[in-house]
């Protein structure tokens, strides 16, 4: 057991720098997210939102800095982390059905050389029910709409029964009913004490959906409770002068 470092935060990031080629994609990121919040990471295109998520999940190697989840390095926390990648990151023409994709969320727990059993199928069905997709369990994934694909991906993360969930643009290109289902679900996760961290692109819904906000443009511009951070100055600093403050 390594010594805990900043265990009071669900996510603690210090001095994190990531480069693609020569230009830094993320520069000197210091970030703390307390447990039990629903946090949005916002910023303009190319500001490093997805890169930040992928670095935290160990998919992109940092050139400097460190990351802790509840005080521990990622390797010790894999089973407590749920991930919903961008929908477009996979080929939906893969020959499989919805239930099978959801069960993939359990592969880390099932372990090597074993097959999923009835208990795993039950858990997959529960997760599908939570996202309203229980009637689609046997559907080929190539036949799903965008919103349905997104819900399947969320069910796959749900079945992991994690403590921290990372979602990369879950509301991108989904229909309104799906967005409502996703938000209600994420908020209920938060209400159960889980931490939900979402890369988000729609500024008009930030205040309505989230209680914690991280504003990013290669560097951290601002972070904290939405009510403190969602200000005209911070928006200008993040997006330049292209965005006016949207108060709903």
């Amino acid at each position: 057991m390594t010594e805990l470092h900043e265990p009071q935060f669900a996510l603690h990031v210090e001095d994190l720098t990531v480069t693609y080629g020569a230009a830094p994609a993320l520069w000197d990121i210091d970030l703390d997210v307390p447990p039990g919040v629903m946090a949005a990471i916002v910023g303009p295109n190319g500001s490093g939102k997805s890169t930040l998520l992928k670095t935290v999940l160990g998919l992109v190697p940092p050139v400097a800095g460190h990351i802790r989840l509840f005080g521990q390095p990622l390797a010790a926390m894999r089973k407590r982390v749920g991930y919903v990648p961008q929908r477009s990151s996979v080929d939906w023409d893969f020959p499989t059905d919805v239930r099978d994709v959801v069960m993939m969320g359990l592969y880390g727990q099932i372990g090597w050389f074993r097959r999923p059993g009835p208990a795993h199928r039950t858990r997959a069905m529960e997760a599908l029910t939570a996202v309203g997709m229980q009637d689609y369990a046997d559907r080929q994934i190539s036949q799903l709409s965008g919103g349905q694909q997104q819900r399947v991906f969320i069910a796959r993360a749900l079945v992991q029964d994690a403590d921290v969930y990372f979602l990369d643009e879950p509301m991108a290109g989904v229909d309104r009913p799906t967005e409502d289902i996703i938000i209600a679900l994420l908020q209920s996760l938060r209400d159960q004490g889980k931490t939900v961290i979402v890369v988000h692109h729609d500024l008009t819904t930030v205040e309505r959906y989230f209680d914690w906000l991280v504003m990013l443009n290669t560097r951290i511009i601002a972070q904290g409770p939405v009510t403190d951070v969602y200000t005209p100055e911070n928006l200008r600093a993040t997006y330049g002068h292209r965005v006016a403050l949207v108060k709903v």
Binding site: R78, S89, F94, T96, M104, G105, Y107
Partner: peptide
């Protein structure tokens, strides 16, 4: 099952 997941979604497999 690992080969299946790695073929379908390598990033997610890595995150697991």
């Amino acid at each position: 099952k690992e080969a299946k997941l790695v073929s379908f979604d390598p990033d997610y497999a890595r995150a697991l």
